[in-house]
């Protein structure tokens, strides 16, 4: 619930910013963003009020909401999940994205793919070199199909 209140405040700030920013636009260019910004502001306010009401002691939710089906069930496996592994992987993905252009699509992808395989391996279970090799083959295959058959000009960078 505290998260909800924070989110609401951030979104209210966004909508105020959008309102102010849209002042600079022509009459027909600002109409729609304004309507949307106002709607966003009002809805966020509702969320804020909801959050405050529900945060009060003694509030009992009317219905027990089931966790939404698609997606967030982070602790299905019982453990709290591997947050550290996820953060490391995220860093690799950021590097991957940023290196695509300077290093080249293929090289950056093979490199980052292999690093991710290393991070995500289960010691004693994963045959790391097999996965890295498999990854490299998959990446190369896709890059070739895109470059040659589909003629998509993937960035070549320094190392192809």
């Amino acid at each position: 619930m505290r998260n909800d209140r924070l989110t609401a405040l951030v979104l209210i700030a966004v909508s105020i910013f959008a309102l102010l920013e849209s002042n600079r636009y022509g009459p027909l260019s600002r109409l729609f963003p304004r309507v949307v910004a106002v709607a966003l502001g009002v809805l966020s306010l509702v969320l804020l009020v909801q959050g405050i009401v529900r945060a009060r002691p003694g509030y009992r939710p009317k219905s027990v909401g089931l966790p939404s089906a698609s997606g967030a069930e982070p602790s299905v496996t019982g453990s709290a999940g591997d947050t550290r592994g996820m953060l490391f992987s995220l860093l690799v993905m950021v590097a991957w994205t940023l290196l695509l252009e300077p290093v080249g699509f293929w090289a950056a992808s093979v490199l980052a793919f292999s690093t991710l395989v290393l991070i995500l391996r289960t010691p004693g279970k994963t045959v790391v070199w097999k996965n890295i090799l498999g990854g490299a083959i998959l990446v190369t295959m896709f890059v070739l199909v895109f470059r040659i058959a589909l003629r998509v000009p993937l960035p070549e960078g320094l190392l192809w």
Binding site: T140, M141, L144, I148, A149
Partner: peptide
């Protein structure tokens, strides 16, 4: 020809393509 190219990709003619591009 596209089909052949895709298959060729799968069979890994890649290192050659690497050099050719350079």
């Amino acid at each position: 020809r596209i089909a052949a190219l895709i298959i060729a990709g799968a069979v890994m003619v890649l290192p050659m393509a690497l050099f050719a591009a350079g």
